[in-house]
């Protein structure tokens, strides 16, 4: 079966059960904010949340996540007001922007489990690749998002 909830909407895909979640989201649900970057779980451009945990959607088949709750960048917040998105704009993080949905989803998941991460925590947790080299701002923006979440 291929039934689960995507951004709050109960969804059943009429696609082969081995279809990676990435392609179902992009090409059946037209949720194109999640990006294809490598197809091998190496770059993180396709990162989404499955039951709140950051996952590389190119590595998960839709048949394996029956009954879960999937959140994509489109479902992260209304009005792009998630603290990570707010911090991202404040620090002007993106350049080309292609990896940024996955980067933001990875950062949001990190802050859920570790609301006060150190720089070392961030470096250990964020393994997404950004070819534009936004890493220094990614690090700063995650620290800022943590501050915003604490009410600062």
């Amino acid at each position: 079966m291929t039934r689960f909830t995507v951004n709050g909407n109960p969804t059943q895909y009429q696609l082969a059960a081995d279809t990676p979640l990435l392609w179902a989201l992009r090409e059946a649900s037209n949720l194109t904010g999640t990006k294809f970057g490598c197809g091998a779980g190496l770059c993180g451009a396709c990162t989404v949340h499955v039951d709140g945990v950051a996952q590389r959607s190119c590595q998960i088949s839709i048949g394996s996540i029956e009954g879960t709750y999937v959140t994509t960048i489109e479902g992260l917040a209304d009005d792009r007001d998630h603290p990570v998105q707010v911090a991202w704009l404040e620090k002007q993080v993106p350049q080309c922007g292609f990896c940024q949905s996955g980067m933001i989803m990875a950062a949001a998941a990190l802050l859920k489990t570790n609301p006060n991460p150190s720089r070392a925590d961030i470096r250990a947790a964020i393994s997404n690749i950004c070819r534009c080299g936004t890493y220094p701002r990614v690090e700063t923006a995650i620290l800022r998002a943590a501050e915003l979440m604490r009410g600062g």
Binding site: G33, I73, E74, Q85, L89, G97, Q100
Partner: peptide, 9 residues
């Protein structure tokens, strides 16, 4: 261009 690049649009 950055608002579009933080919400996937």
């Amino acid at each position: 261009d950055l608002p579009l690049k933080v919400d996937g649009s």
